[in-house]
Nucleic acid binder design. Structure first.
Lengths: 188, 188
DNA sequence: TTGTTAAACGGACCGACGGTCCGTTACGTT
DNA sequence: AACGTAACGGACCGTCGGTCCGTTTAACAA
């Protein structure tokens, strides 16, 4: 790849990131806006990323890499802890990348699922859930956990204090993994 | 409301319903398409429904009424049964109204939540969950259940046999309500 | 039946946006 | 220095949501 191409790709990603971070409605960030903010022609933008979806996916995966890398690092603990940590990291990610996540999830055409991060997270969670719930149930339950932190839901609950949301997710995690909660086992 | 207004409103809703039912991508159904299919001018369409979101919401609520009415009718059984029935009806609704549901949920601006049906279902589920899980947890868990049947997830799992999806949802419901599954209690 | 009025109609029109095209520019190589 | 090729950039296009306004027509009163 030529030097100017690399430079421009970098400039576009940075500009787009800034725009999405400051936008409250991701739909308000147009491709012209991105091109202008990056100081780049529109043709360059589209040649590099194909279309709007491509740009958003590229930016999303860039941001996702840090999170997944940090998750890979942590071993240890039982399955519940591992799932809890993963969901907590994901929730934080969704909060910190509200607009970008909403943009990604509202692209249409199965965009929230045909995505490197989703596939990896689903597989990871499903494997952990399978240990206590069996492989059959694990697949859907894993999807259900990921659905519980959909960015527009997180957005809808934006006025909740962060720890309430967090504890809600943790409650769900424990329910799905062992179905015991609040000290007292529910099955006797 | 004038007679021709009533007639046109009806024609538009019927035409839009037909178009969304036969479309695989809801974004492919344009307002011009709807107007043409209804045999009505575009101005009429926008005057009656305000904007695209208004049309979709109106159509969605129309279809939703049948489902909620039928749910109101059923009393009896314990909380788990009630939640299970509700979620099952909702899942069937999402499958039968794939494109319309996707259209509604991808409008942006909190559209999946600022919706008569969502509010009612959330309140209903939260009340039932509160009985075993307490009111604090019930609120988020109710959202989580509803998120598990998001239309794009249902769509993503479209190649699953219907009963697999259904049993996945039922497993989730039981997990959330009492956290016991597969005969053997998980807490000892 | 006829006249009047206000509401509804409909389609030409507009601005914005995603995406394309192609003449121009500049990087990398020999 | 010269050349070929890849990248550039912005004018341009088609489509779509939404508006505007001249025309029609339902509703009602005389």
């Amino acid at each position: 790849m030529r030097a100017d191409a690399v430079r421009n790709r970098e400039a576009v990603l940075q500009a787009a990131g800034r725009l999405f971070d400051t936008a409250d409605d991701p739909a308000g960030v147009s491709m012209d806006d991105v091109a202008a903010a990056a100081g780049v022609g529109k043709g360059t933008l589209f040649r590099r990323f194909g279309d709007r979806a491509g740009l958003i996916r590229a930016l999303y995966e860039l941001r996702t890499e840090r999170m997944t890398a940090e998750l890979e690092g942590e071993g240890g603990g039982d399955a519940v802890d591992a799932v809890a940590r993963t969901m907590d990291a994901l929730l934080r990610f969704k909060i910190e990348n509200r607009a970008l996540s909403r943009a990604l999830e509202s692209l249409g055409g199965g965009s929230p699922y045909t995505n490197a991060a989703y596939g990896g997270l689903h597989a990871r969670l499903a494997a952990l859930i399978a240990a206590t719930r069996g492989p059959e149930a694990a697949d859907f339950l894993s999807h259900a956990l990921l659905a519980a932190v959909r960015s527009d839901l997180v957005d809808h609950l934006a006025d909740w204090p962060d720890d309430r949301l967090k504890s809600g997710v943790q409650t769900l995690v424990r329910s799905v993994l062992r179905g015991e909660e609040r000290g007292a086992p529910l099955c006797r």
